[in-house]
Design a protein around this nucleic acid. Structure first.
Lengths: 194, 194
DNA sequence: TTTACTGTACCGACTGGACGGTAAACATTT
DNA sequence: AAATGTTTACCGTCCAGTCGGTACAGTAAA
């Protein structure tokens, strides 16, 4: 007889606090960038002390790694959802990848967050290793989603290029161009079944 | 009567020393990454004192900005050279952009250097502004190189995606895949004249 | 005389992290 | 059900080290 909803003003569970910390740290990355993400500031933003934060994450690398895993899970959940909606036609997975990518990166806060996360990979080797493995897995799905593998790769790289361009605001497409790109990408998927 | 080759053991010009510093700083970025690029270390690697380095660059931001300009110039010079070789056929500029990009990023040291530079943009706003402007200029050339502008943009994003994938080693293509991609990119340029 | 440095001493701000302590929640025994 | 110990979650303080940047006196070639 101790439902979570009854825990008002009570102690939080570790999982709840960790999520608070993820959100706090992410907000700092969005607002101020990687170099402002210190243990003290993350703790303050999450509403606890630095010692309290270090109870949940033994050091900064562990915190960074966990943030990467947290946001990766969010992306992969959305990817699975969109993938399920696309069904099992050839290229369905690649279409879902394109939709999930565009959806995420055209949100300004998410773009800003990811720009910081990508920058963090340069300093945090373990986070970089995680992301490399993710891309290798995605590329494996790309090659085996029912399209000509070369074409599938080309389309994936186009999506990644769009992501890259939106994330850093490197001469990104305007709205009409983006619409054209997305529909052309879908068309290319349909035209290149294996 | 004072050829550069006679300046052995003599004083360097400011331009020569600045180039020494660029090369030293770049080597640190390649070998150890952004967080290891301190003023003291850059000076040491360049074979001068910290005071000497600060004589040429008043602060770290100025140094970082200059490093960006230095490498940008190298890339743009190569781009112009390849562009001249391609001639004036429709899509020539985009072909040169593709060739220059692939050529650079498939060199491991250059890829490592650029990964650090891209990470640095997150912390150094002025460097980021410079790069954004470069991409805007390139996109302008892409849109006006004699191809259908939408297709030209798509092809540019594919090239950028390939760059991104090679730079971070995110499931990059193998040699055969890369060959196919490059020839397909060239083919797409030829097929989409305006 | 100007340019291009060397070398050293220093400061002020900041950072990751170690550490000792504490109170609430939970488990176990009585 | 009361008493007792144990674990979990967290606080507050302190510290050793690093980094960018300043200041300044001196030097040697052009």
């Amino acid at each position: 007889m101790r439902a979570k909803s009854e825990n008002i003003g009570q102690r939080r569970t570790a999982a709840e606090t960790r999520e608070l910390i993820f959100k706090a740290a992410s907000q700092i990355l969005i607002d101020e960038g990687l170099s402002s993400l210190t243990l003290a500031k993350a703790a303050e933003q999450a509403g606890l002390s630095k010692g309290g934060l270090l109870y949940h994450f033994p050091n900064k690398v562990a915190l960074i790694d966990a943030i990467f895993e947290y946001h990766n899970e969010i992306f992969e959940r959305r990817l699975e959802q969109l993938s399920a909606e696309e069904g099992h036609a050839p290229g369905a997975w690649l279409k879902a990848y394109a939709r999930a990518s565009v959806e995420q990166i055209t949100d300004a806060d998410t773009a800003s967050l990811y720009a910081s996360l990508f920058a963090a990979e340069e300093e945090y080797a373990s986070a970089h290793a995680l992301m490399r493995q993710k891309y290798i897995n995605w590329q494996d799905k790309v090659e085996n989603c029912g399209l000509d593998p070369n074409w599938a790769l080309l389309i994936r790289l186009t999506v990644d290029g769009l992501w890259f361009s939106e994330m850093h605001q490197y001469g990104p497409p305007d709205l009409n161009q983006r619409k054209w790109l997305i529909s052309k990408i879908m068309e290319l998927v349909d035209q290149n079944h294996q």
